[in-house]
Structures are given as C-alpha cells and as structure tokens.
Amino acid sequence: MLELRLVQGSLLKKVLEAIRELVNDANFDCSATGFSLQAMDSSHVALVALLLRSEGFEHYRCDRNLSMGMNLNNMAKMLRCAGNDDIITIKADDGSDTVTFMFESPNQDKIADFEMKLMDIDSEHLGIPDAEYHAIVRMPSAEFARICKDLSSIGDTVVISVTKEGVKFSTAGDIGTANIVCRQNKTVDKPEEATVIEMQEPVSLTFALRYMNSFTKATPLSETVTISLSSELPVVVEYKIADMGYIRFYLAPKIEE
C-alpha cells in the first residue's frame, strides 16, 4: 500500500513538465526515504535524478519499496488536470498494475481521481559517485534559461568556461559566434539574484545545447540553478525543489577525438 499526499501539488506538475521532454518512460521508486526517479534519455547522453523526500509530504505511507513504471507524457496529461492549488495524493495497492492520482481543491469542494495504467520498464540504474567539482556556479535559473535559449539560436553546442573572471558561455554557428560572460555578483538585493562562483581550478567543457535547453524546463521549480563542472565529467545542473529535494540533470560532455 502506497499513499503520498502532497499539499503543494503544483510541485509535482512542474516536475513532470521538467522531465517529460527528456525521458519518455521511467520507473518511480518509492521507499522510506522518498519518491525518486533515475532515468536516462533515449540516447544515453543525459541522466535525470529526482528526489522528493518523504518529510516533504503531508502524509507518506509506503509499506514496502515499490517501483512504478510510468509513461511520463501520460502522467503529465493526468497531472495537467489538477489545479495549481490542488492537493495531490498518489495511491497504489501492492501488486496493482495501476496508480491513482487524487486531486482535491483547497476548500475540498471538488475531488477527482484519475487512474493510470502502469508499465513494465527495464531500466539500468547507474551508480553516481561523489565527485569533487572544479567549479560550482550558482545563478538565477531564469538567467541560465535565457542564455541557453539565446545561444541555441546561434549554435548547437555551448562551451562553458569558468575562470577567476567569471563563467563564460560560448557558441559558434554558420552565422557567427556568441560569448556571454557572467561575473560573480553577490551584491544584490535578494540572495536568489546572486551569481556565485566557487572555483578550485579553471575548467572548460563543451555540451550539446539541445539538452541544456531541455533541462531549463525545470526553471519554474527554483529561482536558482547550480551548475557543477569538472574536467571530462558530466556537468550537473541542479534545481532545488523547495524543502523537499532536487532534480539533477547530468549531461555527458563532448570530447575531443
């Protein structure tokens, strides 16, 4: 028996919108720790890891570990039927091949339940070792989204370089080149507007912009984004989800042949 009640149901709606472009089908894993997902895109170039901790739910009952295979587009279709202020409850019985999403309006005058068929998904679970990152950049998520969108109209790849001067996003295409430098800026009115760069050593890596743009679908989840870079390691683009957890996107770099 599984019953997870999330008062801020809009978070789950935003999570689905953030990942459904990247991943078609995925297993949601439910344990005492929380509601989580790890999935790769079909090309095995990017990986998404989601965690919504059990403490973040108003009610969290998970009698035994359960893995539920879902088509994310179908799940998103159902969650779009929930109002932004609705409370969402996820329910499943042991051994059932369906999951139920229950939507309650804030004043309890409308209650809907949507039952979705589960699917069997063979997924490879990757072990992600802790890494020391050469550079960690925290910046406003809307700014990062704007940069990725702007650069993708010029080129297909972005070179992200971190130096003492700041973080530089560069691209090149048939029509020309573009460079956008963001300097560290801690003297802002609100901490979420700051750009903070922690650099152990300079790093420069190349990534496909198509994936970066897909990651920015998570922008509504968090005011800030954290980009962690190390030479020849996948970049980690992390959006914190309120007090509940995170969504992390890992993207393999393009490597010189």
Binding site: M40, S43, H44, V45, A46, L47, E124, H125, L126, G127, I128, P129, T157, T206, A208, L233, P234, Y250, L251, A252, P253, K254, I255, E256, E257
Partner: peptide
C-alpha cells in the same frame, strides 16, 4: 572533431 560521449561511460551500472 568533438564526439558526443555517453553518460554510461562515466557512471557505473549499479
């Protein structure tokens, strides 16, 4: 020439 690496080249199956 830059080649797109795969995420599976960095993380182990576990």
């Amino acid at each position: 020439v830059r080649k797109q690496s795969q995420i599976t080249a960095f993380f182990s199956l576990g």
